[in-house]
Design a binder for these strands. Structure first.
Lengths: 155, 155
DNA sequence: TAAAATTAAATTGTATACAATTTATATAGC
DNA sequence: GCTATATAAATTGTATACAATTTAATTTTA
């Protein structure tokens, strides 16, 4: 790539990711609207349906989100009656997130969503799987990189 | 994929994209901090370095962003002395965005960024190109889909 | 050509993201 | 046991995203 093309928008992997992630997220909106969830609330529920009773810390590690994003989001899910939060009696610093009956019941309504979205991508199942794994690999490579370097911590 | 795995977080392409896009964006921060730009401001500058004197509308189509996001962002770039905005004399509805001298000069400082980020991805150049094209294809498929369907517009 | 429909920005309101700081609790070293 | 350090959430502040509405200008059409 020559000096001239180096900064072209369409040559940036970062922009391809940034744009694609937002467009894909928009595909979920009509289906999530029916459930009264935002996209971030939806992926949070996905984690809880897999692992109920998880601490906020672990939830954040799974979603790559911090308490600055999760605290207000969890308060909204609680206000909607889908979860409740309680301090861990074994470690009062930690907050455990649990599904309510209503929160668990919503999983049944969500089951239809992945297929409805998939239809609109015009992708083959193998393409989805391959792309997903490439992205997982890249994400964890970067995440490792971040944990080892920030400021080099020389104090 | 059975009923149980259907909603697993790690099986969702959407989440792989969402997480990866945010992690990649974070890689830019230390370099963009030196220029005083956020990531979204950076991709906006990429478009302007390619196409100076572009209307806000066209800028939004290129970045998949609307005036709700762009108007405040452009005001900040203007306050930073990188661009100025002026109504199109031929069509007063339209606002044309132009680089200042300082804005154009910043391109030279940005030239070093792509390589610095690329190093941290542990990807081969061909992998980057292939992944980028896959994402472009998916993005435009979805975007087409959106333009043709929203509400079916039956009036 | 005057009203109706369309278009481009800007505005408003809600919900993230995320860095940086604060608060409360727990653990480690002495 | 007590202090220094570390950890987990919450809080604060800034910057997006984006739907929905408003405002101003242009184009269409009756």
């Amino acid at each position: 790539m020559n000096r001239n093309e180096l900064l072209h928008l369409d040559n940036q992997l970062c922009f391809a990711l940034y744009a694609c992630a937002r467009e894909v997220t928009k595909l979920y909106r009509p289906f999530l609207d029916e459930l009264g969830l935002t996209y971030t609330q939806y992926v949070t529920m996905l984690v809880l349906w897999e692992t109920d009773g998880i601490p906020v810390k672990a939830l954040g590690e799974r979603l790559y989100l911090d308490s600055g994003t999760l605290t207000p989001l969890l308060k909204k899910l609680q206000a909607a009656g889908l979860i409740h939060r309680e301090r861990d009696t074994a470690d009062e610093r930690s907050v455990i997130v649990r599904l309510t009956e209503q929160g668990r019941a919503m999983q049944q309504l969500a089951l239809a969503i992945p297929d409805k979205v998939f239809c609109q991508t015009s992708l083959q199942p193998e393409e989805v799987a391959q792309l997903r794994e490439q992205l997982h690999k890249l994400t964890s490579t970067i995440h490792q990189c971040e944990r080892s370097s920030p400021g080099s911590d020389l104090n």
